[in-house]
């Protein structure tokens, strides 16, 4: 299988061609820096993204608290993570980077607050 990946590491947007099956990559062409090659390989095997969303609040001036994953999570798990976040409620005080959901769906990545809640 061959895939063309548009690199998003920088605004150059190199079109990188990756060939292989599953985790076995046979060739990577079209990148112009090592970061681009690393990105394309990861993107071929398992695309990773920062997840962002919001959770409901109780007893706070704002009705929602924006949250994010502290690190990248597998892209294909994001819809399921969003479902889980719908059942979460937080109460103040919350500081930026406080953990809202620990180790979401066994990814070893925490969902943390993006803003303060007072």
């Amino acid at each position: 299988m061959e895939k063309t990946i548009i690199c998003t590491v920088c605004p150059q947007g190199c079109r990188i061609k990756v060939a292989g099956e599953g985790k076995n990559i046979t060739s990577v062409t079209g990148f112009s820096c090592p970061r681009g090659e690393t990105y394309a390989r990861q993107e071929f095997v398992c695309p990773m993204r920062i997840l962002t969303g919001s959770v409901r609040t109780e007893n706070a001036a704002e009705v929602l608290l924006p949250v994010r994953s502290a690190d990248r999570v597998p892209r294909d798990l994001i819809p399921e993570c969003m479902k889980l976040l719908r059942s979460v409620k937080v109460t103040p005080p919350v500081k930026v980077r406080d953990v809202v959901v620990k180790n979401i769906l066994g990814t070893r990545v925490d969902i943390v607050a993006s803003a303060e809640l007072n």
């Binding site: 962002t52 969303g53 919001s54 924006p66 994010r68 930026v96 993006s114 803003a115 303060e116």
Partner: peptide
């Protein structure tokens, strides 16, 4: 920025990927 809860902010200024509320904070 408070409503831009998505990531992608600060890559050049802070050399890390922040959300809008974090960047504003």
């Amino acid at each position: 920025l408070l409503q831009c809860i998505h990531p992608g902010f600060g890559l050049s200024y802070f050399k890390e990927e922040l959300t809008g509320p974090e960047y504003a904070h």
